[in-house]
């Protein structure tokens, strides 16, 4: 079976994002970019399913600027078989990405689409669910364990009260949570090999998808900073402050 893994290029998780001086957007100029960490987990899970003999091919997709090729090469170095770049300079929002992925899912006919539960830039947590809805497929989001048996996926997922295990028919969409696995690192020989793996580029128009944004960002700003308070000398002083100053106990 084939697995499709969409990956997103985002600001590296170690970089603190800054707002442009005019407050119109986050400043992405000369900022270190990387694969969305939840998508790295998705690539890893797909590779484990392939290594276990369940999946036969892992195809990675990224949507956005030409620079997303780097993200795709990273995924290829982690073991993916081939890559598709949907190239556009339009700001892509989750619904547009879900529609692009739908067009590719129809072409590629994967049994599983595995992707991150959210991207660490816009924190939307929508794309996987939207793709599942557009395909009429079931979904298992925030996965912490995935097993595939007899044309079905059994997925443990992290929910507010604890853990819930779902059984979904395939094809299906799975989104990854932090504890699903620990992604491997790409080795140098694999990075070299990845350069020769196939990567095709298509445009949204080739897929017949209108990617115009639906939400306009009017402004971005840093939230009011929380001021550091006072240090207290001991437990007695702390209890006194909480009782008499903060009045919270």
């Amino acid at each position: 079976m084939k697995i499709l893994v969409p990956v997103k290029r985002v600001i590296d998780y170690n970089v603190r994002p800054r707002v442009k001086a005019d407050g119109s957007a986050v400043d992405l100029a000369n900022v270190k970019m990387a694969m969305n960490p939840f998508d790295e987990i998705a690539v890893e899970e797909a590779m484990r399913l392939k290594e276990a003999g369940i999946a036969t091919e892992v195809v990675v997709v990224s949507c956005g600027l030409p620079a997303c090729q780097e993200t795709l090469r990273t995924a290829l170095a982690l073991g993916a078989d081939r890559a598709i770049l949907v190239e556009t300079d339009v700001e892509l929002q989750p619904l547009a990405v879900a529609k692009l992925l739908k067009a590719l899912a129809v072409q590629e006919a994967p049994q599983l689409v595995i992707l991150g539960k959210q991207a660490i830039d816009d924190d939307s947590s929508q794309t996987g669910q939207m793709l599942a809805a557009l395909m009429g497929w079931p979904q298992a989001v925030f996965a912490s364990k995935v097993t595939v048996v007899d044309g079905k996926a059994k997925v443990a997922r992290e929910v507010d009260g604890g853990t819930e295990t779902l059984e979904v028919s395939l094809p299906a969409v799975v989104t990854t949570d932090l504890r699903l696995n620990e992604p491997r690192y790409a080795t140098l020989p694999n990075i070299m090999k990845a350069k020769k793996k196939p990567l095709v580029t298509v445009k949204p128009a080739d897929l017949g998808v209108d990617v115009a944004p639906r939400l306009a960002t009017l402004k971005v700003a840093e939230p009011a900073k929380r001021k550091a308070g006072a240090m207290v000398a001991d437990v007695a002083a702390l209890v006194d402050k909480l009782k008499n100053e903060a009045k919270v106990i």
């Binding site: 600001i11 660490i120 960002t217 402004k219 840093e222």
Partner: peptide, 10 residues
């Protein structure tokens, strides 16, 4: 957005 480091008005 960005883990609460930035607030966006949309």
């Amino acid at each position: 957005i960005y883990a609460g480091n930035i607030l966006a008005t949309v």
